[in-house]
Amino acid sequence: DTFTFTLDGIEVRLHGASEELIKTIEELLKRDIRWEELEKWIREWEK
């Protein structure tokens, strides 16, 4: 599955994202998160 969203005018596609990761990103997007914050968060998630 591919999860697609737009952040700061950039279309982002995550391939093979888990349901948990998708739900977490959706929550972060509701908080009007900035790209830099999401990028940092995703790097931490990957560890």
Rank of each mutant, 00 (worst) to 15 (best):
D1F: 11
D1I: 13
D1M: 11
D1S: 06
D1P: 12
D1C: 10
T2H: 09
T2D: 15
T2A: 06
T2P: 12
T2E: 15
T2Y: 11
T2L: 10
T2Q: 05
F3D: 01
F3R: 00
F3E: 01
F3V: 02
F3L: 04
T4V: 15
T4P: 01
T4I: 15
F5Y: 01
F5A: 05
F5P: 05
F5D: 03
F5T: 05
F5R: 01
F5W: 01
T6F: 15
T6H: 08
T6S: 04
T6V: 15
L7T: 04
L7K: 02
L7D: 02
L7E: 02
L7P: 00
D8P: 01
D8S: 02
D8R: 00
D8A: 03
D8E: 08
G9K: 01
G9L: 05
G9Q: 04
G9W: 03
G9C: 05
G9T: 02
I10E: 06
I10G: 01
I10V: 14
I10M: 09
E11D: 05
E11S: 05
E11C: 07
E11I: 09
E11T: 14
E11F: 05
V12E: 01
V12R: 02
V12P: 00
V12S: 00
V12C: 07
V12A: 02
R13C: 15
R13K: 15
R13W: 08
R13G: 05
R13P: 02
R13T: 15
R13F: 12
L14R: 00
L14P: 00
L14H: 00
L14F: 06
L14N: 00
H15W: 07
H15T: 14
H15I: 15
H15Q: 10
H15M: 09
H15F: 13
G16L: 06
G16V: 06
G16F: 07
A17H: 02
A17C: 09
A17G: 04
A17M: 07
A17W: 06
S18G: 07
S18P: 08
E19Q: 12
E19P: 15
E19F: 09
E19T: 14
E19I: 14
E19A: 15
E19R: 09
E19G: 10
E20H: 10
E20Y: 12
E20L: 10
E20K: 09
E20T: 10
E20D: 11
E20G: 09
E20P: 06
L21H: 05
L21M: 14
L21D: 15
L21A: 10
L21W: 06
L21Q: 10
I22C: 04
I22F: 03
I22Y: 02
I22S: 01
I22Q: 06
I22E: 02
I22R: 07
I22D: 00
K23P: 01
K23G: 08
K23Y: 07
K23H: 12
K23V: 08
T24G: 15
T24L: 15
T24M: 14
T24C: 08
T24Q: 14
T24S: 13
T24E: 14
T24V: 12
T24D: 10
T24P: 01
T24N: 15
T24H: 11
I25Q: 00
I25T: 01
I25Y: 01
I25F: 03
I25M: 03
E26H: 10
E26K: 15
E26Y: 07
E26A: 07
E26C: 04
E26T: 13
E26S: 10
E26F: 08
E27Y: 07
E27K: 11
E27F: 07
E27S: 09
E27C: 10
E27P: 01
E27M: 11
E27A: 11
E27G: 09
L28T: 03
L28M: 14
L28F: 09
L28I: 07
L29T: 02
L29G: 01
L29N: 01
L29H: 01
L29V: 07
L29F: 03
L29W: 02
K30Y: 04
K30C: 05
K30F: 08
K30M: 09
K30N: 09
K30L: 10
R31P: 02
R31M: 11
R31N: 14
R31W: 07
R31E: 07
R31H: 12
R31Q: 13
R31I: 07
D32V: 06
D32T: 10
D32H: 09
D32N: 12
D32F: 06
D32Y: 06
D32R: 05
I33N: 04
I33A: 09
I33Q: 03
I33E: 02
I33V: 10
I33H: 03
I33Y: 04
I33R: 03
R34F: 07
R34N: 10
R34E: 06
R34S: 12
R34I: 08
R34P: 05
R34Y: 05
R34C: 04
R34K: 14
W35D: 01
W35P: 04
W35M: 08
W35N: 01
W35V: 05
W35Q: 02
W35A: 03
W35G: 02
W35C: 04
E36Q: 12
E36H: 13
E36V: 14
E36R: 07
E36Y: 08
E37F: 08
E37V: 08
E37I: 06
E37Q: 11
E37P: 01
E37Y: 06
E37M: 07
E37H: 07
L38G: 00
L38P: 00
L38K: 00
L38F: 15
L38A: 02
L38D: 00
E39K: 10
E39A: 09
E39S: 10
E39Q: 13
E39P: 08
E39H: 15
E39I: 14
K40T: 11
K40N: 09
K40W: 09
K40F: 09
K40I: 11
W41A: 14
W41E: 07
W41L: 15
W41P: 01
W41C: 08
W41N: 06
W41D: 02
I42R: 02
I42G: 01
I42H: 01
I42P: 00
R43K: 13
R43T: 13
R43F: 10
R43D: 08
R43S: 13
R43C: 10
R43I: 14
R43Q: 14
E44W: 08
E44M: 08
E44S: 12
E44D: 13
E44N: 11
W45Q: 11
W45D: 03
W45C: 10
W45G: 04
W45E: 04
W45I: 08
E46W: 12
E46L: 15
E46S: 09
E46V: 13
E46I: 14
E46C: 10
E46Q: 14
K47G: 11
K47E: 13
K47Q: 13
K47R: 13
K47S: 12
K47T: 14
K47P: 11
K47D: 12
